[in-house]
Design a protein around this nucleic acid. Structure first.
Length: 556
RNA sequence: GCGCUCGUAGCUCAGCUGGAUAGAGCAGUGGACUUCUAAUCCACCGGUCGCAGGUUCGAGUCCUGCCGGGCGCACCA
């Protein structure tokens, strides 16, 4: 029995009570009842506080309602016991056989177990890592790469149509500074103070000089443009390669330049003008974002005729909506949180509902410790520990998992030395080890000629009546709600935490319950049932790791 | 000054939109491998949930005010 099925039994029980007039509720019986897994074993397999919630509207003591629900619920199939406890909790125990069938359900669903249709029909655009193509990606980008990609996988698992997008800031003054820096480096001059610094600038500059000696003869201004463009091309290619190697794939790389070149900026501003939120003042063109909660109005076109960055953003948003996305998710660093309000106001100015069509997630910055000191991440100062270096040190799995483990809105510290040194007690290995262990058992079963465990119907669910078996079954039953909740709340870290808890539950099961027959022992129903449970657990861990983009090894 | 955000065990962090005795990992102490992977398991140690009020049957969680850290407040990108 899954929590969802148990919930339904509770809903049914309550409806019956309301229909019979045993409980009077103005709004009728609730459509949903949440069941939770108690921390203490004595509180049953599942518990609910529904009676306490209904006490006030029903005008009766919670324990009295609980008692009525308990009697009714006991008549539902698969319910072994229902107790009223404390102020009015319902503690529920589920029949072993009813619980045991879950292993078969997991096996039947296979790779799709955990997926659901809670977001079916939604077209979602997920934008993350908006970087300047002027240097390697740093740790902050890396966090979003892991988290953004995982969120994309989660939303897809909930049935949404997801497009992952990265916006390229390839327009503006910083691009020229980049070009100047590269050229200076190529000519052996020192890089301007306000330019880009770091070893990669020297390397890139000299590389361009080496590969394109013909640029030496160009006039200075053309030389600058050539360096800027070649540097852009090479740097972007490197970013993309680094991300692909990190298993983060973008469906669309969106260039800010093309927004202007294709006239989409003009179109976007026109759209806002039609909505009536654009005006001219002091020789500049403004958007009246204060109509929708912004602190002040924002300039789209400066009095000198140049478009602001915000104008590009506006056009980009309008374009996303016109490409058919119901919802646009932005994942921004904490240093941009001051931008949130105007983005939401901008969406409202475009005639949209900010609660419905746009969503901004803020990720706290990542601190990096190395040698006990905090590393300041400045691209210009050249003190960068990049995605590439981090991956080289820790490996893709460990880094992705570590970055996915924490909620985006909490700051985190990555101690490079610790990650390097402790690589064997990183939680990712704990989960992966469980998967490898499960795989080893299943290999052993094949060797012994017991293949029944792989089949959904090849076992007797009723023999899975040990506490550790029940714990494990209930853990497996959680995956669907973990996935839908993690997706709904945009919190991939819940998947990681769930995997750790489930791996722990499995390790305890393994410690106490022998799965394969020993020696010359003949396979029994218990062996076959436990094999089904083991196979189901492997499916769950494999699917969960997949949602985080982390590999599920067969051996370690 | 205004705004956003975070303060939970020695360290890194969870805490399932208000539930029962606040949890993991690491660090520390002590145990468990003749048979499926010991990268594992078990036990112990460890807390004024920043502080003070408030809301209610019930608050780490919601509200207010302080204290402390981070970040942001452009006709910059």
């Amino acid at each position: 029995m899954t929590p969802e099925q148990l919930s339904q039994h509770l809903v049914d029980a309550l409806s019956t009570l309301v229909d019979e007039g045993a409980v009077r509720l103005v709004d009728g019986a609730p459509q949903q009842v949440r069941v939770e897994r108690p921390k203490v074993r004595e509180h049953g397999d599942y518990a609910t506080n529904i009676a306490m919630q209904l006490a006030k509207p029903a005008g009766r003591p919670p324990r009295e309602i609980a008692s009525l629900v308990a009697d009714r619920l006991l008549q539902a199939p698969g319910i072994a016991a229902v107790d009223v406890a404390g102020p009015g909790f319902l503690n529920i125990r589920v029949d072993a056989a009813a619980q045991g069938v879950l292993a078969g359900e997991v096996l039947a669903a296979g790779a799709s177990y955990g997926s659901n249709d809670s977001l079916a029909g939604q077209r979602i655009n997920v934008e993350f890592i908006t970087a300047n193509p002027t240097g390697p990606l740093h740790v902050g980008h890396t966090r979003w790469a892991a988290l953004g990609d995982a969120l994309g996988r989660l939303l897809s698992a909930c049935g949404a149509e997801v497009v992952r997008e990265s916006y390229i800031n390839d327009r503006g003054a910083q691009m020229d500074k980049f070009g100047e820096s590269l050229l200076a480096a190529a000519q052996g001059r020192s890089v301007p103070d306000d330019g880009y610094h770091g070893a990669y600038v020297i390397e890139l500059g000299t590389r361009i000089d080496r590969e394109h000696p013909e640029l030496r003869d160009l006039p200075a201004d053309e030389q600058l443009v050539a360096y800027r463009e070649e540097g852009y091309r090479l740097q972007l290619a490197e970013q993309r390669q680094d991300l692909e190697d990190f298993r983060t794939h973008f469906d669309v790389w969106y260039s800010e330049r093309t927004l202007h070149a294709d006239g989409r900026v003009k179109h976007g501003i026109e759209k806002l003008r039609q909505e009536g939120h654009v005006y001219e003042a002091d020789g500049a063109l403004w958007m009246r974002t204060t109509d929708f909660g912004d602190d002040k109005d924002r300039v789209l076109i400066r009095s000198n005729g140049e478009h602001t960055y915000f104008a590009s953003d506006t056009a980009y948003y309008v374009d996303k909506r016109e490409r058919g996305f119901d919802r646009c998710i932005y994942m921004l660093g904490a240093d941009h949180h001051g931008y949130v309000r105007r983005l939401l106001a901008m969406a409202a100015c475009a005639g949209d509902d900010p609660d419905e069509h746009i969503e901004v997630l803020i990720g706290q910055l990542v601190k990096v410790l190395r040698g006990g000191d905090e590393l300041r991440l400045s691209k210009r100062a050249g003190t960068i520990l990049g995605l590439r270096e981090l991956v080289d040190i820790t490996g893709v799995d460990a880094l992705r998992y570590t970055l996915c483990r924490y909620p985006a809105d909490s700051s985190m510290t990555v101690d490079v030395d610790a990650v390097t040194r402790q690589s064997s007690d990183n939680p990712v290995y704990y989960v992966q080890y469980a998967h490898a262990r499960l795989s080893a058992i299943l290999r052993g079963a094949v060797d012994l000629g017991i293949a029944a465990g792989e089949r959904a119907d090849g076992y007797d669910p009723a023999v899975l009546d040990q506490p550790r078996e029940g714990d494990l079954l209930r853990a497996l039953a959680e995956l669907p709600r973990v996935v839908s909740q993690a997706a709904a709340r945009r919190e991939p870290h819940r998947v990681a935490r769930y995997l750790e808890a489930t791996a722990a539950t499995f390790h305890r099961f393994y410690d106490e319950c022998r799965v394969l027959p020993m020696g010359d022992e003949e396979p029994t129903d218990v062996h076959r049932a436990r094999l089904a449970l083991v196979a189901a657990t492997r499916v769950v861990l494999g699917n969960g790791l997949g949602l985080l983009g982390v590999s599920a090894p067969e051996r370690m």
